[in-house]
Simulated assay, not measured.
Amino acid sequence: MEPDTALLILARAGLPAAQLRHLLDSHPDAAAALAAARHGAGLSLPGPVREALGRPCPRRLGADQAWLAGRGRSLLAWSSPDYPALLRRAASPPAMLFLEGNPALLWHPQVAVVGSRRPSAGGRQRAHGFARVFAGAGWAVTSGLAEGIDAAAHEGALEGGGPTLAVIGTGPDLAYPRRNAGLMARIAAEGLVVSEHPPGTAPVASHFPGRNRIIAGLSLGTVVVEAALRSGALISARLAAEAGREVFALPGSPDNPVARGCHRLIREGAALVESPGEVVAALGPVAASLAESLRGRLAGDGDGATGHSATGQPEPSGHHKRLWSALGHDPTGLDELARRTGLTVAELSSMLLVMELDGQVVADNGRYARHP
């Protein structure tokens, strides 16, 4: 059985994420994990779950396979070395992620921008402006594709020429709200759409707190622009704080109902910020930990690994030397770098991210050059 087919069956079966993570950790591949689950694997599984594992619906499986075969789509399992390190450290990480777009962005330094679905005009403008500055400073902007602050943040990041990630509470093929379908398509083309739910999954209220935990788990910091006292953005902020990430809140007028959630966060210890530069300055040093995690991931890639000299400094690997030779002072696209080096785009994306974080290369609209 193809690995993706086994993963799709497991994803559809309705196993709790913790059980599915355990299965994937305990077996050499997805097919073995599926076989073990079908035999019980020491788990007490409800009848519908056993049925879904043993006799998956051909129509649904075929639709899932058709979606996955589309351009730029992939299914990332907990057991994969490409599973993002920051999310792995979060509480209750998803066992699988359905992705459309550039999966290397999962490892890119991210800042979440979240807030009210019904912001003030000023709040919407601030979300757009903050995200545009973050993108220009090399950060990916992560949000939830909701109307209001989320949509403004995605649009600001795109306008700033940087990547943006949309974490959604539906299947990866459904935009919610529907009016954001065009924005979602643009994010899939220029950034990354992320969902823990199989294709076709409709919006359900209980899915959105789960979406918020992924937003918080992927990001080094969360910025709350406007939020009422009862707001999903406050859930994202709480989850970020519980994961040890930075939380920032913008103050507002005491007469503005959607500023009161931010004021509560500030009273509870969130950093008060008035400009995007304050967030960038606070998160810059934190990004070094992400670079270290990415180096550790690359260290398991054979020739792609870096060794260490007698001084303890990393030495470039064969792949890194080849990439460095292929880079010049004129910006070069990934396809051309792949042609010059013989490496895959996925391999190049990972190495270029580390080199960018180390200040060795600069990125300009998806093209890379040696740092002057």
Rank of each mutant, 00 (worst) to 15 (best):
S325M: 12
E155A: 15
L229I: 06
V49A: 07
V224Y: 03
L15I: 10
A32C: 07
T344G: 05
D364R: 12
A188N: 06
E278Q: 10
I215E: 08
P163G: 01
A189I: 09
T344P: 00
L45M: 08
H154G: 07
I266S: 07
L334N: 01
P93I: 12
P314Q: 14
R21S: 04
M355K: 07
S80W: 13
E356H: 11
A205M: 11
Y83R: 06
G54E: 05
T170C: 08
P209K: 11
R295V: 04
L15F: 14
Q19A: 13
R260Y: 04
P372H: 06
A104K: 02
D364C: 07
P314Y: 12
A121G: 11
Q360D: 11
H329P: 15
A6C: 07
A37P: 03
H154K: 04
G138R: 12
A85I: 05
R118A: 15
R267K: 09
D173G: 09
G210H: 06
A287W: 00
E190G: 04
I235F: 05
C57D: 12
S350T: 15
T311Y: 11
D25S: 11
A228M: 07
D301K: 09
V225W: 10
G296V: 02
R245T: 08
A37F: 03
S317W: 06
H320V: 11
R59C: 13
Q19E: 13
P81G: 00
A135R: 02
G138P: 01
G296C: 06
L34F: 04
P28Y: 07
L106Y: 01
G217Y: 02
R88A: 09
E356Y: 11
A31H: 10
L250A: 07
V361E: 10
L158W: 10
E159C: 15
R55Y: 14
W67L: 06
A32N: 02
G161I: 00
R21Q: 08
A131G: 05
E155F: 03
A310R: 12
A31N: 07
G169Q: 07
W107A: 04
S253A: 06
G144R: 00
L165Q: 02
L45Y: 13
A233Q: 00
A291Q: 14
M96V: 15
G300T: 06
S219N: 02
W107M: 03
M184A: 05
F208A: 13
G277T: 04
A85Y: 00
V345M: 04
A175I: 08
A18V: 08
G217A: 00
